[in-house]
Simulated assay, not measured.
Amino acid sequence: MGVLGGVAARVAGGATVEFRPSGSSMVPLIRSRQSVVVAPVDASLLTVGDIVLARVAGTVHLHLVSALDPARRRVQISNNRGRVNGWTSHDRVFGICVSVDGVPRPGASGRTR
């Protein structure tokens, strides 16, 4: 299990977790090694543009919600560079990013569990 998998397990268990993800797929929203806080989420309240910790096709990502399918209880996950990771069910969306480097993400706190 990688770093994000471990964080996902903790968030799925109800913890709010602060960590420093690496990579450039979410620049400029999240830069590599910036501090992010992820809290458990009520996936039915998500909106396009939310940053979530979710498992898509076996891989955990900290990426954007790019589309919603409420009837099938699923969301589409994409990075911030135009790559679509795919669709995943609400039960595989573990948390929502509530802050980046101490700056709250707009509306995110209202979607936590």
Score class of each variant (00 low, 15 high):
Arg31Phe: 09
Pro104Trp: 03
Val65Met: 04
Val103Thr: 11
Ile51Pro: 14
Arg81Phe: 04
Ser32Val: 08
Gly82Val: 03
Asp42Lys: 13
Gly2Ile: 08
Gly2Trp: 01
Thr59Arg: 10
Thr59Val: 15
His90Ala: 01
Phe94Ile: 12
Ala67Gly: 10
Thr59Glu: 07
Val103Arg: 15
Pro104Glu: 12
Gly14Lys: 00
Asp42Thr: 09
Val7Glu: 07
Met26Arg: 05
Gly23Met: 11
Ser44Pro: 01
Gly6Asn: 10
Ser78His: 02
Arg81Asn: 03
Thr112Trp: 06
Val3Cys: 01
Glu18Thr: 15
Leu53Phe: 06
Leu68Ala: 02
His63Gly: 07
Ile51Cys: 12
Arg33Val: 10
Pro40Glu: 08
Val37Tyr: 01
Val98Arg: 03
Leu4Asn: 00
Asp50Glu: 03
Arg105Thr: 15
Ala71Trp: 01
Val52Gly: 10
Val100Asp: 12
Leu53Asn: 12
Val60Trp: 00
Val48Ile: 12
Thr112Phe: 11
Ala57Ile: 04
Val7Met: 02
Gly82His: 03
Pro106Ala: 15
Val84Cys: 03
Thr59Trp: 03
Arg81Ile: 08
Thr59Pro: 00
Val60Asp: 10
Arg74Tyr: 00
Arg33Ser: 12
Ala71Val: 06
Val11Ser: 04
Val37Gly: 02
Pro28Phe: 10
Ser89Ala: 12
Arg83Thr: 10
Val7Asn: 08
Val36Trp: 06
Asp91Thr: 09
Leu4Tyr: 01
Ala15Ser: 14
Val52Ser: 05
Met26Ala: 12
Trp87Cys: 04
Ser89Trp: 09
Val7Leu: 04
Arg33Thr: 13
Arg81Trp: 05
Asp101Lys: 04
Gly110Val: 03
Val27His: 14
Pro28Tyr: 09
Ser99Tyr: 07
Thr47Met: 11
Pro21Gly: 07
Thr59Asn: 09
Ile51Trp: 07
Pro21Asn: 12
Arg92Phe: 13
Val36Lys: 07
Thr88Gln: 02
Gly49Ala: 11
Arg73Trp: 00
Val60Leu: 02
